[in-house]
Computed example of a mutant assay.
Amino acid sequence: MSLVGEERKAIILDQLNQEGQVKTFDLVKRLGVSSETIRRYLEELEEENRLKRVYGGAVKINLGGEEPSYLKREVLFADEKQRIGKKAATLVEDNDVIFIDDGTTPLQMIQFLMNKSHLTVLTISIPAMHQLVEYKNKDLFSGEIYFIGGKVNATHSRVTGSIAEKMVSLFHVDKAFISIDGIVLNKGITSIDAERGQLLARVIENANQTIVVTDSSKIGSTQLYRIAGWREVDIVISEVPLPKGWSQLLDEHGVEWVLAE
Rank of each mutant, 00 (worst) to 15 (best):
P106I: 10
E36R: 09
A154G: 00
Q131R: 13
I12F: 05
Q21M: 11
R40Y: 13
M129L: 13
L45Q: 07
I235H: 12
V212P: 01
A228V: 11
R53T: 01
Y225W: 07
S157F: 03
F171Y: 15
V173F: 11
I235E: 10
I12C: 06
D174M: 08
L3N: 03
I126M: 05
G197R: 09
G161R: 01
D101C: 09
M114F: 02
V233D: 03
E93S: 10
V33M: 07
V121A: 14
G64K: 08
L199K: 05
D79G: 05
A228K: 02
E261R: 14
N208D: 15
A78F: 11
T123E: 07
I192D: 08
V236M: 03
V240M: 01
M109A: 03
R196P: 00
V75W: 07
S142C: 01
S125E: 03
D215V: 08
I178S: 05
F99N: 10
R40N: 13
T90V: 01
K81H: 09
Q82F: 04
F25N: 13
E48K: 15
N186K: 13
I126N: 00
Y41T: 01
A207M: 11
L200P: 06
T24H: 05
G197W: 09
R202N: 14
D174P: 01
V240E: 04
N137T: 02
Q198D: 11
M1S: 12
G56A: 11
Y41L: 05
I38W: 04
D193P: 04
E134L: 12
K29E: 15
N115G: 01
V133K: 14
G220M: 02
A10Q: 11
I11A: 08
P127A: 11
G150S: 05
R53L: 00
W257H: 09
I219M: 05
G143C: 08
T123K: 05
K138P: 00
K187R: 14
Q209M: 14
T190Y: 10
K9V: 05
T155A: 02
R53N: 00
T210V: 15
G150T: 04
G150F: 06
A194N: 08
T104V: 14
I183S: 04
A58D: 04
L63H: 09
Y55I: 08
G85M: 10
G85R: 10
I204W: 04
F141G: 01
V59Y: 13
T155F: 01
R30I: 00
S2C: 05
Y225S: 03
K151D: 04
R53Q: 03
E144A: 05
E252W: 08
S142T: 10
E7H: 04
G20D: 02
Q108R: 11
Q209R: 14
V75H: 10
S238V: 09
D79N: 08
